[in-house]
Each structure stands twice: as C-alpha cells, then as structure tokens.
C-alpha cells in the first residue's frame, strides 16, 4: 500500500478536528492554547504534504517553518496573557472570564 496525499490530508484533518475540539471544549486556558498548537500543526502537515506531492518545491517547507516561528511567538504572548488573566481573576477557567459580555 502506497501512502498518498489523501492520507496526509486525512491525518491533518483529524489533527485539526482534535485541535478544534480542544479549543471549544477545554475549560482551562492552557488546554485551549494547546488546541491552537494542534490546529497550527495540522496546517503544517498540509503545507508539507502539498510541497511533497507537487514537485518538492521549497515554498511549502518555508511556510511550515514560518508557521512554527509564528506558533512560538504566539505561545509566548498567549502565555503572558494567561498569566495576567490569572493574576487578575485568580483563575484560568475561560468560562468564568466573561466580563466582555457586560
């Protein structure tokens, strides 16, 4: 059995769905962030898969590296925000942080 592009895309889709599920269902802000990481990585898989199956061009790999850099920066900022939220509300439960409503 040969591994085709469809396999990669299936895995990527599963990974994206898991990430999305985590983002939607987890109450802990850290868990939400981890879900976001999953979504970003599913995107990376897509980039690389398309790069591999369309003639090994470098642009897809470059985009993947760019996303990794972006994820790192995002994690840094997001964790800082979460830290501040914790300082303010004494919790990281996203359900309880709903002052945006008022």
């Amino acid at each position: 059995m040969t591994i085709t592009l469809t396999h990669f895309l299936m895995i990527s889709a599963v990974l994206f769905s898991l990430g999305l599920f985590a983002v939607i269902t987890r109450r802990n802000a850290i868990m939400v962030l981890m879900g976001i990481e999953l979504i970003l990585n599913s995107a990376n898989i897509n980039f690389l898969a398309f790069s591999r199956y369309s003639g090994m061009n470098i642009e897809g790999q470059m985009a993947a590296i760019f996303v990794i850099i972006l994820a790192a920066a995002e994690a840094a900022i997001a964790l800082a925000i979460v830290l501040n939220i914790y300082k303010r509300f004494n919790t990281v439960n996203v359900d309880e942080i709903s002052i945006l409503k008022d």
Binding site: V23, T25, V32, V94
Partner: peptide
C-alpha cells in the same frame, strides 16, 4: 448571543 464566552464565539465563527 453575546455571552462573553470566547468558545461560544468560536463555535459561531466555525
């Protein structure tokens, strides 16, 4: 609709 819960918004967006 405006619950203030970020996850609800995400659901709507998706």
């Amino acid at each position: 609709v405006q619950t203030g819960k970020i996850q609800t918004y995400i659901i709507f967006a998706i």
